[in-house]
Design a protein around this nucleic acid. Structure first.
Lengths: 234, 234
DNA sequence: ACAAAAGTGTTAAGTCTACACCCATGA
DNA sequence: TCATGGGTGTAGACTTAACACTTTTGT
């Protein structure tokens, strides 16, 4: 089995940073760790990479095992390898982040699992270097969202422009002029207006839109420049 | 030693993708692998992560061991974990990329090591998934260079604006109008004009500039928008 | 004197920002 | 009828892109 005979082997983990949006607030999904060390403390969804699985497969499996979530947007973030990051035994961790619409997945999540959503601004203390992972994921998402339409992964398939704006404002922690926002977002050609209105947010109601999937995949690869003041992006 | 008793451990490698610029051409540093499998074939600078070193430390150590290079810009890129990527034994690899000025480091590199520079457009076939790593590194550098002044890492401490432009054109595989380029680059406030001229490139000679280090570190964190046609950046 | 690269300015088009009012509806 | 959030247009400032000629100097 060990062909590179003199090399030492180590544990490889995957940790998933799961972001969700419920139409109002950006949230982070956490679980209480169920083994030592740090048993019972708040943690990202983590687990060890198995013999014959790729990192992407491991991330998807771990997410499914711990939360029931399947088919969500998942992207590799960064690999953390400080020798002391896990005090029990050296473990290198490949971090992934996930983006999803909380409402769509609330059934999948529900009862069987003990994961909990926390508003991003009110997260508890996390184990090991998980807080650092979260910070880096936030930075990466901002970075990417400034250039790619990645934030649609956080929305339901039907959404309103005010919802979309709320999301952008939450991610960038900024306020955006709604006239400029809607003009720019419509100019991308990514949105298709539906006949139906969302009456939940206001009396008048706001038109629903859906993504134009064709334009979306093309736009995903391209750059965009959504955010007025790039300084906020780091 | 093995506290998480039931988990399997695996080999963790670091591979370094080293980019260099000689004033004219963007190049990639490669070595012939000196152990099986694929012994003798062209490879990135790779090695295994040791017991008590961080990933960054491993990347720096490996780069030094294989090329003598020290103190160069090095950044984590991505982690490759396909179970079959190394046919000998499962090995997950954390890829790093390095940027350096070829001329400055040519002594360090020179005789003792057998690394060779290849023009980026004429690289030989590489082992395993190293070609994929190179492609991803190129993409990442373009991405980052569109927003941050990262390309200065490839230049000597004194450089001319035509050299800088050649570099940007090489990285983005684009041609840029020199009047617009110099206006924009000077507008950043990152360059300090020197009295001396570089007479190598032309009879008239081009003024040398150096980086304004203070502004540089600030600008490094901020976004920029250098490249006229963002579509080329992917 | 000429070839080769450096250096420099202007204009027109396009984009961005700031800003304020009317609309539709449920209570 | 009024309070609430949804929806829309414009003008001025700024930024960008396109473009051509002069300078220097080694041969």
């Amino acid at each position: 089995m060990h062909k590179y005979s003199k090399q030492s082997r180590l544990l490889l983990a995957v940790d998933c940073i799961v972001f969700g949006f419920d139409g109002e607030t950006l949230k982070l999904l956490l679980i209480r760790r169920d083994f030592e060390p740090e048993k019972g403390n708040w943690s990202l969804m983590g687990g060890f990479v198995q013999d014959k699985e790729s990192l992407d497969q491991a991330a998807n499996r771990i997410l499914k095992q711990l939360t029931g979530l399947e088919g969500v947007y998942l992207e590799q973030l960064f690999t953390y390898g400080d020798p002391d990051r896990d005090p029990m035994e050296r473990t290198v961790s490949v971090a992934y982040f996930a983006l999803l619409d909380i409402n769509q997945y609330q059934n999948q999540l529900s009862t069987d699992y003990h994961a909990e959503w926390f508003p991003l601004k009110k997260t508890p203390k996390l184990i090991f270097d998980h807080q650092e992972m979260v910070e880096q994921a936030k930075k990466r998402i901002r970075y990417k969202a400034a250039l790619h339409p990645i934030l649609f992964e956080l929305l339901p398939s039907k959404f309103t422009i005010p919802q979309l704006q709320t999301l952008y404002e939450a991610v960038f922690n900024a306020t955006i002029d709604k006239r400029n926002f809607s003009r720019r977002i419509l100019a991308t050609g990514l949105l298709v207006k539906l006949a139906e209105k969302d009456k939940a947010g206001s009396k008048r109601g706001a038109f629903y839109y859906r993504l134009n999937r064709e334009n979306y995949y093309a736009a995903f690869q391209a750059f965009m420049n959504f955010i007025p003041n790039p300084d906020q992006l780091r």
